[in-house]
Write a protein that binds this DNA or RNA. Structure first.
Lengths: 194, 194
DNA sequence: ATTACAAACATACAGCTTGTCTGGATATTA
DNA sequence: TAATATCCAGACAAGCTGTATGTTTGTAAT
């Protein structure tokens, strides 16, 4: 191995710059309206660097989605640790949802993850990415709630997907309606109790 | 007015051809991968005609979405009339959902309405279109259920949006999972009963 | 240290796509 | 039938994507 750090660092740095610049532009203008010349100019490199690191524009977007998902999960996790732990699996589900909605308020995140990602990457790939991040913890939460007998015994993954869909839609709602959405989701989840 | 029908007919005919050809291609390859030369060739006209009838490619897609929404509503409506009318507002909601899921199985419809439309037209425009079609009847159904005291008194539009989001996600599920999704949605709606 | 090599990046290029513009065909009105 | 508006076809310019080639920078070996 020796001390070959410089090349590795250089590579990682430009890659980070590209992903960061792309994230901002995708968030502001959307995927289709963002051009690769714009991205590389914002990143301070040329298109040669972009196509050296990524197969195509969609691959760059995919990297942005992965990063955004990771940041989302991180934010939710931190909020969950900070909040007091009233136990109870149903309460946990609801609190997880609140954390998700709060974390989704980050500028541009909704457009990238909910609006553009399915169209650009395809539903299958988005499902796969989602399974590794947000949906994973949601499935766990629903699973323990079912095992504990706190909610009805329903098909695990479908239920998780349906809840996830509700949270996504709520995240897209205008900010002033968010309260009503939270209340309604709470009622829907409570309705699952045995 | 007199009998100026021929021009009107001609115009309507090429417009129909364009929308029909576009619908097929958008359904198969998605919006981004479909080119306007492809569309006009399939429609048997030239790009001149396309840009005479539509401002741009997105406007053509918008027309496709409108038509698809109308067909969707028609199919659901027919199914609803054919089915026996067990009364009860909650049953009605569930049956409406079944009709929606069945009508959504039409080839390409999911891609156009759920995957591509939000990215191409923007969330706001999709909401506006949806409000004039599917969501409209859903809001009515939920409204009467609430007025009848059959389900909890929750914010009308948010609840309708959340249910709509669930149905959309269920429609995207693999065909073999559809049964589990239907069952789960049924349980979620039943949980809303007072 | 110099040479040999590989990785990272810049520049140039070809093909395609979109939207506009101009001209001709067809229908309507006077 | 002349004038006019509508409908549509073909040509054009600008821009974007992906590739291919060249150049620099870092790494390894002798």
């Amino acid at each position: 191995m020796s001390v070959r750090r410089r090349q590795e660092d250089r590579r990682a740095a430009t890659r980070r710059n590209l992903v960061a610049a792309a994230r901002n532009l995708f968030a502001q203008k959307g995927y289709a309206a963002t051009t690769t010349p714009e991205v590389v100019q914002a990143a301070g490199v040329t298109r040669g660097a972009l196509y050296h690191h990524f197969a195509d524009k969609a691959a760059l977007f995919s990297a942005v989605v992965e990063e955004e998902h990771a940041l989302l999960a991180l934010t939710i996790h931190q909020a969950a640790e900070a909040g007091e732990d009233e136990p109870g699996p149903v309460k946990s589900l609801i609190r997880g949802g609140e954390g998700f909605l709060a974390a989704m308020q980050e500028e541009g995140r909704r457009r990238i993850l909910i609006v553009d990602a399915p169209a650009v990457l395809g539903r299958a790939r988005v499902d796969e990415i989602d399974a590794r991040h947000g949906l994973h913890t949601l499935v766990e939460g629903v699973g323990t709630a079912i095992e504990a007998g706190a909610i009805k015994n329903l098909p695990l993954l479908p239920l998780a997907h349906l809840l996830s869909a509700m949270f996504d839609r709520a995240a897209l709602a205008p900010a002033e309606d968010l309260g009503a959405y939270r209340k309604t989701i709470k009622a829907l989840i409570r309705g699952l109790r045995t």
